[in-house]
């Protein structure tokens, strides 16, 4: 559905929108949600710096231990959280994830953020919004809206976690064993 060039273009546009919404790069912190949200956060951070000429702190926020579905799933291993040295108090935090679906990961990530500090504002940027929200959450910056059925799976593959950059869509019943991050 999205090629490497599409992904790069989407992230560049998102970076421009972030700078426009924030009126510059002051007090911005970009926090990715592992695994592929962190890759996207790094890339958005680079674009933000090349546009604004200002270094933007990038971190990672893992939401595993704040999830509401732990008891309904096999054990999930948490991923590291890394907070930039300046912290997040009083900053505008841009949360970044690859796919926005039910909204439950974002809810958990908001709780995880509030345990670390008190940002001035939190924004949400996602590469793909596939609909089917279960909570009142929406993204401020969207790379691509992909209306899907719940039987489909979206595969986001990003270097260096995966071998290439792409977003693909597959029917769960026929293509359940594809590699890459599925949401």
């Amino acid at each position: 559905m999205l090629s490497q060039a599409d992904i790069t273009r989407a992230l560049t546009r998102i970076a421009h929108e972030i700078l426009e919404g924030n009126r510059g790069a002051d007090d911005l912190v970009v926090m990715g949600i592992p695994t592929r949200g962190v890759v996207l956060a790094d890339r958005i951070g680079e674009v933000l710096q090349s546009i604004s000429g200002q270094a933007v702190p990038v971190g990672a926020i893992d939401a595993t231990l704040y999830r509401d579905d732990l008891r309904r799933q096999p054990t999930r291993a948490p991923r590291p959280t890394t907070v930039p040295s300046g912290g997040i108090d009083g900053k505008t935090v841009v949360l970044v994830d690859d796919v926005l679906y039910s909204g439950r990961t974002i809810r958990a990530a908001l709780d995880a953020l509030s345990a670390i500090g008190r940002p001035k504002a939190v924004r949400l940027a996602v590469l793909v919004d596939r609909g089917h929200r279960e909570l009142p959450i929406r993204a401020d910056y969207v790379g691509k809206n992909l209306p899907t059925s719940t039987a489909e799976r979206i595969f986001v593959r990003l270097e260096p976690v995966d071998a290439l950059d792409e977003v693909a869509i597959a029917d769960e019943r026929t293509d359940a064993h594809s590699e890459g991050g599925a949401s």
Binding site: A77, D111, A115
Partner: peptide
């Protein structure tokens, strides 16, 4: 041991408690 690292990091947070 790796998850213990994540748990140890919680003690550096402002709220040193998880809802897990």
């Amino acid at each position: 041991l790796d998850i213990s690292e994540d748990m140890a990091a919680v003690s550096t947070h402002e709220v040193r408690k998880l809802p897990t």
